[in-house]
Simulated scan of single mutants.
Amino acid sequence: MDMEARAHSEHPEALRLWLRLLTCTQIVEKQVRTQLRERFDTTLPRFDLMAQLERTTEGLKMNELSRRMMVTGGNVTGITDQLVAEGLVDRVDVEGDRRAYRVRLTPKGRKMFNEMALQHESWIVEAFAGLTDKDIAVLHKLLGKVKDHARNQAATGAEAAA
């Protein structure tokens, strides 16, 4: 019996749960993408980049943005160029490093992001409206256990590979 067939027979509930998580994520993400496009004529990656910048007034270097967003520098550069052209972010030189700059929200960008963030929050709240507050707390706690276990496994795997 191959590994995949054995996994299906020995762990069907774990696999079903994984598929359920993926499906829920995809459905909610599609709804958020559609709403961002229809309401604000923007995309989820642009929203995500602005969300990273909203957390800091001094801005972030491009490599920091790439790392936080878990995308390539080229992707961040393209999005940043669009947002600069629209006056939503600007680039500020980094003192002591002529090659680097920080990207930060402009006042216009901060205002627009705050409007989008309020709407985004309401869309996410609506996505979980079928759950009670207690359900949400229990699900959050359980998914936290999954996250912690996965991180520990990843750290253990990285140590073994070193």
Rank of each mutant, 00 (worst) to 15 (best):
T23W: 12
A117N: 04
Q52D: 06
N75E: 12
E29N: 02
L139G: 09
L65K: 07
E159K: 13
A117K: 09
R99K: 15
Q26H: 14
M1I: 05
V146L: 11
N114W: 00
K108E: 09
R110N: 08
E86P: 03
E159T: 05
M69I: 02
D93Q: 08
H149S: 10
L142P: 14
R46H: 12
E95M: 10
A85I: 00
R39F: 03
Y101T: 04
F128D: 00
N63G: 11
R16V: 04
Q119L: 07
E95S: 12
Q35K: 11
A137C: 05
Q119P: 01
H11L: 15
L142D: 14
N75I: 14
F40Q: 01
G157K: 12
C24T: 15
G130H: 02
E86N: 12
R33H: 08
G144Q: 09
K108G: 01
D48W: 06
L143N: 13
R104H: 04
A127L: 00
V89S: 00
Q26E: 14
Q153I: 05
E10W: 13
M62F: 09
K145Y: 14
T106W: 00
M3N: 07
W123L: 07
G87R: 02
G73F: 03
R102T: 01
L15Q: 03
V138E: 12
L139Y: 10
L21W: 04
N152I: 11
W18D: 08
D2F: 04
K147D: 10
R33Q: 13
D148I: 06
S122V: 00
Q153E: 13
A14M: 10
Q153P: 06
Q26T: 13
N114C: 05
R39A: 08
W18Y: 06
A160C: 11
R68K: 11
H140G: 10
L19H: 00
Q153G: 10
A161P: 02
L53T: 02
A127Y: 08
K111P: 01
L60N: 02
K111S: 13
L83N: 01
I27M: 10
A7H: 05
E4D: 06
A150H: 05
E95F: 10
A158C: 13
E29I: 02
T34C: 10
D81H: 15
A117Y: 11
K108D: 08
T77N: 11
R20K: 11
E95P: 05
R68Q: 07
D48Y: 03
Q82C: 03
D48F: 13
A137F: 04
H8A: 01
A150N: 09
Q153N: 12
V84C: 00
M3W: 13
M1P: 03
E13P: 04
F113P: 06
T72W: 05
A51P: 14
A158H: 06
G74W: 07
D2K: 02
G73Y: 00
E126H: 14
T80P: 10
V84L: 01
A127S: 07
M62Y: 08
R102I: 08
K111Q: 15
V28H: 03
A129W: 06
V103C: 11
T77A: 12
F113Q: 02
E10Q: 15
F47W: 14
Q119R: 08
L143K: 04
N75C: 07
R151G: 03
V76N: 01
Q35G: 09
N114K: 08
A137G: 05
R98N: 12
E4A: 15
R98G: 08
A85C: 01
F40G: 02
L53P: 02
T56M: 07
